[in-house]
Design a protein around this nucleic acid. Structure first.
Lengths: 139, 139
DNA sequence: CTCCGTGCAAATACTTTGCAAAGCG
DNA sequence: CGCTTTGCAAAGTATTTGCACGGAG
């Protein structure tokens, strides 16, 4: 049973890369990240496996930011902050939603609620500083 | 020197179409909807104007569902439910987030929070029934 | 041999953009 | 007239898919 050699090494690596980072990467980022270690890795494989993981529920998606899907290897319940300026995604380690919300929505809308997500939008610290600098510089 | 834009019937129509519906449509839907009244309308114009409205803040986006952006002409604070089976988007007329959440996130993450959104995911009533029917039918 | 995972490239799907023409004021 | 808006089509970008090949059992 020691087919850890070549059995699904790339697949494993894709999952690990995703779980190791906190930047909520795009498929392209994962591809670039692993390219040096797996020079023959193809972008299609990354997409295929990310999709597979998502279907299996072992990873999740933050949604599409600036046209690219952002994946998250952390499936524990938490919220996200997305910078509308640079697209950065930051974890917010809190749940701001009423614990009864899912049930309430299910009853009121007559639907089956499987999950919910909270996303804050705004400007991250780095962009705030950069914008401030640009402003004072130009005026 | 007011920056008033030129009046445009098509632009007006695109906005009105969006505000009149509750289905949180795609650009394509808006295009199809207006095509009969404006036979020479082009999809590019729809995209251009939706983007314009969004930048102006007079419409908003629910996000990308199944690869297509879903727009919302209703900018009053409310939540959404998205059916993961058929992609339908339903308004949930409640705010489940702690009113202090934005401030808390801003302080904790050292960012500027401009807005937040809550999205519930699950199966809508129609899909539930269809799935149930298919199940009993096949067994 | 069979199966699964993959590289590669072509295909697809959605959205944006360049440009000339048309429209508003 | 100057400026905005549009149609059209081409371009651009992200993602998916078809197919044959390679490795493992």
């Amino acid at each position: 049973m020691e087919r850890k050699q070549n059995y699904s090494r790339k697949r494993e690596a894709i999952l690990t890369a995703l779980q190791k980072t906190k930047i909520h990467p795009t498929a392209e980022w994962v591809y670039q990240e692993l390219k040096s270690e797996y020079p023959d890795l193809s972008l299609g494989t990354v997409y295929r496996n990310l999709r597979l993981f998502k279907d299996e529920g072992i990873i999740t998606s933050v949604g599409v930011v600036d046209g690219q899907e952002r994946y998250d290897g952390d499936i524990t319940p938490h919220s996200h902050f997305v910078c509308t300026n640079c697209g950065k995604v930051i974890d917010v380690n809190d749940e701001f939603v009423d614990p009864e919300a899912d049930t309430m929505v299910a009853r009121k809308c007559k639907v089956k609620v499987l999950s919910h997500s909270v996303c804050f939008n705004g400007i991250c610290m780095e962009c705030l500083e950069a914008l401030k600098k640009a402003e004072t510089g130009s005026k």
